[in-house]
Design a protein around this nucleic acid. Structure first.
Lengths: 353, 353
DNA sequence: AAACGCGCTGAGACCGGTCTCAATCTACGC
DNA sequence: GCGTAGATTGAGACCGGTCTCAGCGCGTTT
């Protein structure tokens, strides 16, 4: 007994409506589907029958023949992360306006979960996929989609060697600017902290797992280089998830660092907490800046100077691009780079003497 | 040309694999679908052919015959709202473990968007629906799903007259406790602020659009009544979205209110900002408490005393319940009520003399 | 040796739509 | 009055799976 959840009530189909309206299945399908032509009288009769029987179209059957599912898949690291939640909302709004729905999958930034997500989406015949790739350097997990010709648009980070569209923020410029602010305030010992996984100490030129973090590191290093600070790479601290932001911040303080650039607001939050626990005042003892205008950054004391990203727009633009591709736009793949915006608050001060 | 996005490459089907393996379509389907029996030799040949051709099952076709889509719909107010993001994650994890995916829809707490969302989900033949109903008092938008016998589980709020399962937090007890805390500190003039839409001034017994807010108001009023404060209803301020939290808070301050219970963390945030702008110190001049342990509440100065909800668990439990229903559990509908947890911080002080 | 059971396989219907194509009907032009 | 374009309708194939049922080969039972 297929398709009848509980009570034996089978879903009413076009055939049922057709029978009730005394027309052929084809005709009923035409008026119900709104595609062919039908006389006024027949149209009314069919519509009345449909109403009467409580007809609801089966979108899956439609997809079977048309090949279009009107749904797009979105793979995020973690929907609980405000960044992804906002980007998802941006994408959802654009998608909805164009008649698409979203199938949401969390990858937890894990390659196998991502690969599995792609499989699922391909099986469900989504019209296209939006994904914040777990790995910039090894996007093999996404290859299945590309090979099958399914439109794919990346957001937040790019993927090496994958010829697809991407929408990212200008992280390099943002990091540069944020770091410059610290430098201008007189800091010479400023650290960059990220949770990204990386083998061994960071060295200039190393390719990181996420292009957005990679670009931030690059911007950070550039700023230090321009300021004439020797060996900037030593100030880059990765693997904060493994080692703990808390431990890293404590280490940094011991080393006499006077300012910290947090790679995202979650790290900034942890750093803020640690500094407070340590009784180290921000910004008088240590300055702190971060990416993303998370709500707490304007509520904390002191409020945090941040580089805001157009998160909503990143998701929206990625969706727009994807929908264009689904519609058949065959122009060369684009790499959309959106500007970030500095919000200066109270977390920067000159370094203590 | 159905189902061939771009390049003429058609998807490979069971028939293709069958032909390549020189067996019938039925046999190929059996080994690929893993249901019937097949000899060792045939199994290997089919699998090899599938591998060779790059066969990917079409989940939709499967759904057509089995009637099971392995996807469940989730309708939230706004995925950008941390509450919904967390609940969604909780649901997603449980769903994934059971082999289901999530189709996400935002209702913006709007009846017509919600109705539309239900339509879409029904059309896509989801196996069940999770929804935070936009309206507790008029859940007619959800009736379509219930009538069709699609399993439906509500979360965060219940719906009047709808015989379905629901998972909510114990808002009444939570509000009671939060208010008692204020009362115990000596407050007599404490207000409750919510964004919920309500016609005219609140009067005891009024049924609100959201049962969770309704329960909070009830708990709040009870606490005041027990404390012997006359006409508690006058301290309930609704419609904060329309009127602006800012304006309401200013009005409250003018009226000499000494403590505020914010119905959610977004309201608390706005109230916090307004009080700060007004130069009114928390908690010495006005005490402030709220629902939800949003990240900023522990980072702000002062940190906010909150009633935390098991948000993740609300989503997870709702998903568990839904999956049980999908599996055919026909036991009476449940109303799961999860306890809230008080987190005392620094935003309560005795009222100023 | 006939009957039976069982494992394996294939033919073909079915799910609920869309779509092509042919048949029929109508109305218009000359 | 007749030919024909155009509108309307119906029959049936098709999408890609699942599933029922019958047929076949072969070892076992009696």
């Amino acid at each position: 007994m297929p398709a009848d959840h509980l009570n034996g009530r089978r879903e009413v189909t076009v055939s049922d409506v057709a029978a009730a309206a005394k027309v052929s299945k084809a005709t009923a399908a035409r008026v119900l589907g709104g595609y062919g032509a039908a006389s006024e009288a027949v149209r009314d009769r069919v519509q009345a029958a449909a109403e009467e029987l409580g007809y609801r179209p089966n979108a899956l059957a439609k997809t079977m023949t048309t090949g279009r599912s009107n749904s797009i898949g979105i793979i995020v690291g973690d929907i609980e992360n405000p960044f992804f939640a906002q980007a998802t909302r941006g994408a959802a709004d654009v998608a909805k306006a164009a008649g698409y729905d979203l199938i949401l999958l969390n990858s937890d930034e894990h390659a196998d979960a991502e690969e599995n997500a792609v499989s699922v989406l391909l099986a469900k015949r989504v019209d296209g996929i939006l994904v914040a790739p777990a790995s910039t350097t090894d996007p093999s997990t996404l290859r299945a989609a590309v090979e099958r010709g399914r439109p794919l648009v990346l957001f937040d980070r790019i993927a090496d060697g994958l010829d697809v569209d991407a929408v990212v923020a200008d992280n390099r410029a943002g990091a540069r600017r944020l770091t410059d602010l610290l430098l201008e305030a007189g800091h010479r010992r400023v650290a960059f902290v990220s949770t990204i996984v990386h083998e061994g100490d960071y060295r200039v030129g190393d390719r990181l797992g996420s292009s957005s973090v990679g670009d931030r590191v690059t911007g950070f290093v550039e700023a230090l280089e321009v300021a004439g600070i020797p060996d900037p790479a030593r100030f880059v601290r990765l693997n904060a998830r493994r080692d703990g932001v808390d431990a890293i911040v404590r280490g940094l303080v011991d080393e006499g660092i006077t300012a910290i650039v947090a790679s995202d607001s979650l790290i900034a939050q942890a750093a803020f907490r640690t500094l407070r626990e340590l009784g180290i005042p921000i910004p008088t003892a240590v300055s702190l800046v971060a990416f993303d205008d998370a709500d707490w950054t304007s509520l904390s004391a002191p409020a945090i100077t941040v580089m805001a990203q157009p998160i909503h727009e990143i998701g929206a633009e990625a969706a727009r691009l994807l929908i264009r591709r689904i519609a058949g736009d065959g122009s060369p793949h684009e790499n959309v780079v959106l500007p970030q915006r500095l919000i200066e608050r109270e977390s920067i001060a000159p370094p203590p003497d």
